[in-house]
Amino acid sequence: MAEVGRVAETEHFRNVLRHEVQTHPDVLAVRVDESLYFANTAFLEDELLARVADQPRINHLVLIMSAVSFIDASALETLETPGRTPARRRCNHAPGRGERASDGPAGAGFIPSYAG
């Protein structure tokens, strides 16, 4: 997982620790570089929440997940459960490429809920 910023005058995003990039104070862009499953879900959530908590101006969390080839139910639940902590409530969800607004955590959810 790496925080990324935009390379000036381009549409390319690179690791903030390795490249000279531009970032926005209200936006935290994080590239996830591995599949997400039960064994690393807690780490993912803890790391993201810590980064948001350390930067109180953050209002938008952008997850760049183009390298993620697999997400299990545990990770999916973590991603689609908004507002469990103050840090999560501060961040807005916006749809990514190929995603409808109703597909994300703030919308109808990735998996429909069934009442019995």
Score class of each variant (00 low, 15 high):
T85A: 06
I58G: 00
P95E: 03
L48I: 03
D72G: 03
F38L: 13
G96P: 10
F43L: 15
R57V: 01
S35E: 12
R88C: 11
L44R: 00
D33P: 05
V52N: 02
N59W: 01
L28G: 05
R90F: 13
A29C: 14
A50S: 14
N92A: 15
P56Y: 02
R51F: 00
V62H: 08
L61F: 03
V32F: 11
R90A: 15
S74K: 05
F70H: 10
P86F: 06
T78K: 08
E47V: 09
L79P: 01
D26A: 15
T41Q: 03
I58S: 00
E45N: 12
P56F: 01
R90H: 11
N59P: 03
T78I: 07
G96L: 04
A94K: 14
P86L: 05
L61A: 04
D54W: 12
D46L: 08
H60S: 11
F70Y: 13
A67N: 10
R84I: 01
A53I: 04
V62L: 07
G83M: 06
R90N: 13
C91N: 04
G96S: 08
S35Y: 09
V30L: 08
L63V: 11
T81V: 07
T85P: 03
T78R: 09
V32Y: 08
F38C: 12
G83D: 06
P56H: 01
S69K: 13
P86W: 08
I71N: 03
L61G: 05
I64P: 03
N40Q: 11
P95Q: 04
R89H: 10
P86G: 12
M65V: 11
V30D: 05
V62W: 03
I64D: 09
D46T: 13
L44E: 00
A50F: 08
R31W: 11
I71Y: 06
V27H: 05
D54T: 15
G96I: 05
N92M: 14
T78H: 05
A87S: 11
L36D: 02
L61D: 02
A39F: 06
L36Y: 08
L79N: 01
R51V: 01
D72M: 08
S66A: 14
Y37I: 08
C91K: 02
T78C: 12
N92D: 12
L79A: 01
S35I: 10
H60W: 09
R31H: 07
R57L: 08
A87H: 01
Y37T: 09
M65K: 02
T78N: 04
R90V: 10
R89D: 15
R57A: 13
D54S: 15
A94M: 15
S66V: 14
P95M: 04
E45Q: 15
L44K: 00
A42P: 05
T41L: 00
R88W: 12
P56D: 04
R89W: 06
H60M: 08
S74Y: 07
D33N: 14
D33H: 10
L79S: 00
D54R: 12
N92Q: 10
F43A: 10
R90G: 13
A67I: 08
R51T: 01
D33M: 11
R90L: 09
L63S: 07
Y37R: 12
A75I: 05
V52Q: 02
R31M: 13
N92G: 14
T78M: 14
P56K: 01
M65D: 00
A94T: 15
E45S: 11
T85N: 02
R89K: 13
C91F: 01
